[in-house]
Design a protein around this nucleic acid. Structure first.
Lengths: 152, 152
DNA sequence: CTTGAAGCTGTAGTTGCTACAAGGTTTACA
DNA sequence: TGTAAACCTTGTAGCAACTACAGCTTCAAG
């Protein structure tokens, strides 16, 4: 229990959990955070419990858990007496995904490294990079590279 | 020059480049593919050049290049006489991103592995996984894990 | 009491597709 | 030639997880 009740503004809350007010409102909208109490004028005010909850969410997201997984993890952490098998299952599943992405990314790195080091720096016409992109046959990896997302 | 001119339907084109007709129309809309010639009834018909271009696009995307990077790579591969410095710059930049993501992901894997192996399988109350998510202090990695995206 | 920072709602944009709905065209076959 | 299946058309909405406005209201400090 905090001494101060509900006195934290949305901006302050966001600052403490290292995110933005928009993100907080978004989490409220999708039900990760409960509806905040409001001032007479309609502004949100939070207590320390909200700081803890939001920090948990941000940290789980930072670990790469999806919002849906975070929702489940939150529900479970709200039930301390339950056995933690499910928590373990989610984390293990996530670990598997991380490992498989890691493998694909490292194959991709090899390929890119080969491309870049073999580029002699001449004309586009004879550029190894363009060649490799044009012709999949030139790849070491036969299969797709998994379309490594969200990298510039 | 192909013998057959423009005789490939959108479905056939998509099949040859291993994607879907929707994707082809999408690439046309955003200007990666030129507007196709049409039959009297308004259906798109393509030639072999479109197959090559689409294959290039798909392969570059598969390497993880963003659509904007693909656009630049295409523009450059359309100019065979130009020096390939820029091509190299794009590829090198991309390689850097892949490498940094690889590092962050492998730090993340360590952390998840620790979490999972230290979970004794008791109650949520004393679950190591929940603890680590709740308290960033318990992480080996001090900084953020980079929010590994699109992993369940 | 005034001023400026911060908060409010609602909507649209981001990325790279994918998935309809409600029709029109082509092609193969009888 | 008829018809039915397979394919095509456009337009719009959806996905994840935010982010960024616009146009307005409220709060806190001096």
């Amino acid at each position: 229990m905090s001494m101060m009740g509900q006195s934290i503004s949305i901006g302050e809350l966001a600052r403490r959990a290292d995110c933005k007010p928009e993100t907080v409102r978004y989490y409220e909208r999708i039900g990760l955070l409960r509806d905040a109490t409001r001032t007479g004028g309609g502004q949100r005010r939070y207590g320390d419990d909200a700081v803890r909850r939001l920090t948990f969410i941000r940290h789980a997201r930072d670990f790469g858990f999806s919002v849906e997984s975070v929702r489940e993890l939150l529900a479970m952490s709200d039930q301390p007496d339950m056995p933690c098998q499910e928590v373990d299952a989610i984390a293990t599943h996530h670990l598997k995904k991380v490992e498989s992405r890691l493998q694909r990314l490292s194959a991709l790195r090899e390929e890119l490294q080969r491309m870049v080091t073999q580029c002699a720096g001449g004309k586009v016409e004879s550029c190894r990079i363009i060649e490799v992109i044009s012709d999949h046959q030139l790849c070491i990896t036969e299969k797709s590279h998994g379309g490594a997302h969200d990298l510039g």
